[in-house]
Design a protein around this nucleic acid. Structure first.
Lengths: 112, 112
DNA sequence: GAAGCATATCGTTGATCAACGATTGGTTAC
DNA sequence: GTAACCAATCGTTGATCAACGATATGCTTC
């Protein structure tokens, strides 16, 4: 077990960091968006979505050496970050890049 | 224990991905650099280093609610990514941003 | 050489990631 | 309604992250 009972200092990575570091509001968001593309598979997914304006999950799975559940998991991470949106298109789901968020990411990185 | 003995498919995240996805050479590098700034504390460190052109580890520790060992660990991650360089300056170590790598990161993100 | 200070590294712990197969949920077609 | 298909979720596992304290290393200075 952990020897640190409840130091009230900093748990790890999470929302508490922002409370202790109020000065960097953008740091949190940059970290969140950077995290979304901090995995080769997710970068690849973003590239696929950008190259085709829209894409179904099945197509992504076909182009990657990963199981469907794993791809779906990565898509969830991308969706949670806001970088990717999915809209229901009949029986399948049409995924696409959230251009606003992508712009935000580009701006945050460019302003570093 | 893991039920997957050695599927020779894909271990997780690592160098093997590049072997199986040769088309995205840049995806790996973007993921690696994005990963470096995928944590609020590391974004903060980069910002600190940029705002002062150079910075000693002790100053960074003073400005963050983290232990010295934790900051040193984050610095190591940043160094491993290439974004940050450290040169020995007498008894202390002077850290600074590797502008070339930062430019590379900006370019990779901008080209998305 | 010993003392002192600045960093790095070691060793530990709990939390999270990333992968998979299996199952569930939802939508169309018969 | 049932079958078929697509995508999401569940449950598991091993690996890695992130945090800390404690210890080791390295360079000055005395």
């Amino acid at each position: 077990m952990d020897k640190r009972p409840s130091k009230s200092k900093l748990k790890c990575c999470g929302d508490e960091v922002s409370l202790l570091l109020p000065q960097d509001a953008g740091a949190e968001q940059l970290a969140k968006l950077a995290w979304a593309v901090a995995h080769p598979a997710r970068v690849r997914i973003v590239q696929l979505l950008l190259s085709r304006t829209s894409c179904v999950c099945g197509e992504i799975v076909d182009q990657m050496p990963l199981a469907q559940s794993t791809v779906s998991q990565h898509l969830k991470i991308l969706k949670d970050s806001g970088l990717v949106q999915g809209e229901i298109d009949g029986p399948r789901i049409c995924y696409g890049i959230n251009q606003k968020m992508l712009k935000q990411l580009k701006k945050l990185v460019a302003d570093l």
